[in-house]
């Protein structure tokens, strides 16, 4: 349960884009959250709401873009989308795979009411 810490880091990043003291508010913040990033989206949304309620960002919406876990097979180059994190190529069953997507945890877009 480190989603509240993660929500706090998101808020700190958004602050960098807010002009000082002229009443501009944040409408929404878009984040990429990989399926293999150990984050529960509902808990992240909850943490974000609680923390923004007590800040100048009250009412800002957190939009979570979930990114599937995909791996590339070193053996046969096939790209598999994994529904669960069992790291095998779906085609040749090799465990020799590298993660392409699914570990993302980043802020991608901020929308301001101005």
């Amino acid at each position: 349960m480190h989603e509240v810490s993660i929500a706090q880091e998101i808020i700190e990043i958004v602050k960098d884009y807010l002009p000082d003291g002229n009443g501009i508010s944040v409408k929404s913040v878009k984040v990429d959250v990989g399926d293999f990033s150990n984050i529960l989206p509902e808990a992240l949304t909850f943490g974000f709401e609680v923390l923004t309620d007590n800040s100048g960002m009250k009412g800002a919406e957190l939009i979570i873009n979930k990114i599937p876990l995909t791996v590339n097979c070193i053996n046969c180059n096939y790209i598999s989308t994994l529904d669960e994190p069992l790291f095998f190529c779906k085609k040749c069953k090799s465990p020799n795979v590298e993660i392409l997507t699914g570990t993302e945890l980043k802020v991608t877009e901020i929308e301001l009411n101005d």
Partner: peptide
């Protein structure tokens, strides 16, 4: 409304 595109890791 203004949209700002960013690319920042949350745990940067």
């Amino acid at each position: 409304m203004s949209l700002i595109t960013v690319e920042r890791k949350i745990l940067e």
